[in-house]
Computed example of a mutant assay.
Amino acid sequence: MDTQKNNSLSGLISNPSTNKKQKSNKIESFNRISAHYYLSDNDYFMMLKTMLTVPSIPKDTTGNYKLYLFPALQARTGGILKPMLFFDSNRSSWFLRTLASAPSGSSVPHQQGVDYAIPEGTEVTAVIKLIKQTTSGLYTYKVYFEDYPEETSCKQTWNDPASFAFEVFEPDSVTKEAQYPEERFFIMADIELITNHGLAREGLWETYDFNVHYLTNNSITFGPL
């Protein structure tokens, strides 16, 4: 498991001001670019599916930095589920990585699938799906990539279902422009969002970020960086 910085397991609900760009003496850096979809009480998500294209390898892979591109579902109590495209400068490669954290105060351990190296330009479908619900109020979600080995997936059981959805691009410790991929736009495509009442209502994706270039119910474009 990546122990450099545990932000890949942290919650995504935050003050909008924390997502704004901060001035650096090298480049304009930022914590993340994101769009979100919130449900009201008693409603919850049963599935989030997103098609992602693996970006190019950044020209500069020196230094210890990481890039994350992912959809996510989060419970009100803080547990979060992420099937991620993950770039590790130490390994100069993109990987598939799945993470499932427990809600705040839970003794349930975090879960993580096996990292899987993936070539740039590959299209992958990231999925978070409710696979089991008990009468006692437990919800088991599976986090995976379609058509990839089972060991790359993970599962998590919560007593509080997912009610927040996100699409996110998140850099970690980037200090140079050349540490970003040459593409300055990232498309979260073919988004399918299912609630306990069926297909999610249109027009409810929102963002606090000025560099979410295009936002519809089934496609979100991040950029330009």
Results as ranks from 00 to 15, higher is better:
171 P>F: 06
179 Q>E: 13
100 A>P: 03
65 Y>K: 04
218 N>C: 06
199 L>T: 06
101 S>E: 10
161 P>V: 00
8 S>I: 15
146 E>Q: 13
209 D>F: 05
175 T>G: 10
209 D>L: 02
147 D>C: 13
30 F>P: 01
20 K>W: 07
191 I>L: 12
160 D>Y: 03
49 K>C: 04
87 F>D: 01
206 E>V: 08
39 L>G: 11
109 P>W: 03
115 D>Y: 09
18 T>L: 08
85 L>F: 07
167 E>G: 06
103 P>K: 07
116 Y>L: 11
85 L>R: 03
76 R>F: 13
121 G>K: 07
105 G>W: 03
101 S>I: 07
177 E>R: 13
54 V>R: 00
11 G>I: 05
186 F>W: 10
34 S>W: 13
71 P>M: 08
163 S>G: 04
160 D>P: 05
211 N>Q: 08
176 K>M: 15
153 S>F: 04
59 K>G: 09
171 P>V: 12
188 M>N: 14
112 Q>C: 14
47 M>H: 05
78 G>Y: 04
6 N>E: 13
185 F>H: 14
53 T>G: 02
46 M>K: 10
101 S>R: 05
68 Y>W: 15
82 K>P: 05
82 K>M: 15
135 T>W: 11
25 N>P: 15
134 T>K: 01
74 Q>K: 04
150 E>G: 14
209 D>K: 02
141 Y>T: 00
14 S>F: 09
193 L>D: 00
173 S>F: 14
2 D>N: 15
110 H>K: 10
218 N>F: 03
182 E>C: 13
146 E>G: 14
13 I>G: 11
152 T>H: 08
43 D>T: 11
76 R>D: 15
73 L>R: 01
52 L>N: 00
15 N>C: 09
41 D>N: 09
59 K>R: 14
189 A>W: 14
143 V>D: 06
39 L>I: 02
93 S>L: 14
187 I>D: 13
191 I>G: 04
88 D>L: 06
188 M>V: 10
108 V>W: 12
118 I>S: 01
99 L>T: 09
86 F>T: 08
116 Y>C: 03
135 T>S: 12
53 T>E: 09
25 N>V: 12
181 P>K: 09
149 P>L: 08
87 F>W: 04
172 D>E: 10
38 Y>Q: 15
158 W>P: 05
64 N>L: 15
163 S>D: 07
18 T>Y: 07
181 P>L: 13
113 G>H: 00
130 L>I: 02
19 N>A: 06
211 N>Y: 04
27 I>D: 00
28 E>F: 15
34 S>G: 10
4 Q>G: 09
198 G>Q: 05
30 F>C: 07
